[in-house]
Amino acid sequence: MKPMQPMNAITLPYRPIALGLLAIAFSALVFQRAQAGGSHYFPPVGDPVVKEECGSCHLAFPPSMLPASSWKRMMGELTNHFGDDASVDPATARHITNYLVSNAGDTGGQRYSDKLLRGTSTSKAPLRITELDRWVKEHREVPAWEWQHKEVRSKANCLACHAGAERGYYDD
C-alpha cells in the first residue's frame, strides 16, 4: 500500500464499518435472491399515446423486451390481440408502431435487451416476452402456486412481483 493513500489517514475504527458494510451487502444479496434478482433496466414507455393505448390492460411493456419484427407483427393483428380487441385508428397505430420499432430490443433499445433476447430468433417474431427462452429461464424457480395467486393472475402481470416495473426496474 502507498503510504499517502487516504484510507490510511482515517483514524476511525474502519474495520467494524467495513464489516458492517459487508453484512449489509450480504443481506441485500440474500434479499434479492429471495425476491427477484439481477439489476436489469429496461426503459419504460415514455410516449403518452403508447402508454395510454398499450398500458390500460397490462403494464405498457418496454419496447426493448422484444425485437422490432415482433412489434411489427403484433401491431398488424391488434383486432385479435391474445383474444382481445386492442385495435386503434390507423394514425395512432402508425405512431405506436413507429415508437415500438425504433426502441425495440434489436434497434434503439439494443443495449438494454442484450441478455433477455439472447438466443431469440428475430425471424420468428415472438409475441410473448413471457415465452422468450431467457425469460422462462429467469423465472423457472417461481413456484406454480405463485403464478396462480390472486394478486398475480398472469405471467404478464410483471408489476405483481417487480414493484419497480413501471420505472423500468425488474430487480426487486
Binding site: G55, C57, R153
Partner: peptide
C-alpha cells in the same frame, strides 16, 4: 378494479 392481466383500473 383489475384486468385479467392484473393491471389495476
Amino acid at each position: 378494479g383489475q384486468t385479467p392481466a392484473g393491471k389495476a383500473i
